[in-house]
Design a protein around this nucleic acid. Structure first.
Length: 306
RNA sequence: CGCGGGGUAGAGCAACGGUAGCUCGUCAGGCUCAUAACCUGAAGAUUGACGGUUCGAUUCCGUCCCCCGCAA
């Protein structure tokens, strides 16, 4: 139904720091929602040379001419600055820091958070990788009101998503993230007008059903392959092969799925960078041996598995 | 200045001041009932980039780029 008049722009402050934050921003902008102010985390030295790298959200803000703040601490000084902005809604998407109650409660329409799972399922740090690892293809996105506890606040909107309707099989983490971020942004955009108008009643989560996801560690990416399996991936039983495939996809961005082989008496780390699951068989396409460039799996088998 | 490893044909390695060799793979042909085996032949490298030293550099010197491990 076409609306009689365009919805008046809803001013809001956006908190985010990661790639997911940027995808959400892009999608919100496309849908006509532009933040008045963006809050992100400070530039940090990154990478091997510890080069000071501007974070992606800050870069985005500058490109789009939106004022940006990158406070080290969300203290009273920052709070005072924030009060100068006339916004009565805050949006948080992958900000990376705990936001104090004082700030959450500041706007009249409170603070909303995009979370890429069907809360109370998969609260915490790694909802997307966990969904892949646990093969949870019926998932979704939630818009919730922030409260003092992690991913604990009442839900104002939720959308169920069946991954099988959008992907043949599990995509890489990056593709999954992009897809879910867009879904979340769309749901948020749909919900914002009604929320601001006071037409939505937040629904308390069923805390008894809450599940939590942990922060990923490097060790999570380790796969315990035997030489025999590496030489003939087709022999790996379905369950194991599919579990490994999901691990490769889930950790695709970081820490990446990897395994060790012996070469000249030394342990050599091999990262898996590309794999597909066809039929009932895991197929690895590309790997990066430690100290080397990316090579095809057939080259790897030929030259490293003697 | 965070620490460290590495960049030579598709891959793994070698060589060395005089423009690069080997193994595997690739392509063609042969032999085989057949083959991942064997035989013959072929293609494929501006030796990461740019400067410098030199009669001449892949090889020596300098600068830079890229990749990888640790750490973040």
């Amino acid at each position: 139904m076409p609306q009689i008049s365009e919805p008046s722009p809803i001013p809001f402050v956006y908190f985010g720091s990661s790639r997911l934050s940027v995808i959400v921003l892009d999608e919100l902008l496309r849908l006509g929602y532009k933040p008045s102010l963006i809050v992100t985390t400070p530039d940090k030295p990154q990478g091997r040379k510890l080069i000071l790298t501007a974070n992606v959200v800050k870069t985005w803000a500058i490109e789009h001419g939106i004022p940006v703040l990158d406070p080290i601490k969300l203290d009273d000084v920052f709070l005072a600055n924030l009060k100068l902005v006339t916004c009565n809604l805050f949006i948080v998407a992958s900000y990376g820091k705990i936001i104090p109650d004082k700030i959450i409660e500041l706007p009249t329409h409170k603070t909303l958070n995009i979370h890429p799972s069907l809360l109370p399922q998969y609260r915490g740090a790694s909802p997307l990788p966990t969904a892949i690892l646990e093969d949870t293809k019926k998932t979704g996105v939630s818009i919730m009101q922030l409260d003092a506890e992690m991913d604990h606040g009442p839900v104002i909107a939720q959308k169920k998503i069946d991954i099988t309707e959008h992907f043949k099989d599990w995509p890489t983490y990056e593709d999954f993230e992009e897809f879910m971020a867009k879904q979340g942004a769309q749901l948020l955009a749909e919900s914002m007008p009604a929320w601001v108008a006071g037409k939505i009643t937040p629904q308390e989560q069923d805390h008894s059903k809450a599940t939590y996801t942990k922060k990923l560690t490097k060790e999570d990416g380790l796969i315990d392959f035997s030489i025999g399996e590496l030489k003939n991936l087709a022999q790996i039983p379905f369950d194991r092969a599919y579990t490994i495939f999901r691990k490769i996809q889930a950790f695709h961005e970081w820490p990446q799925a990897y395994f060790f082989i012996e070469k000249d008496g030394a342990k050599l780390r091999i990262k898996i960078t590309e794999a597909v699951f066809e039929g009932e068989t895991l197929m690895i396409n590309k790997v990066i041996p430690e100290g080397k460039k990316e090579i095809s799996y057939s080259d790897f088998v030929r030259n490293y598995l003697k």
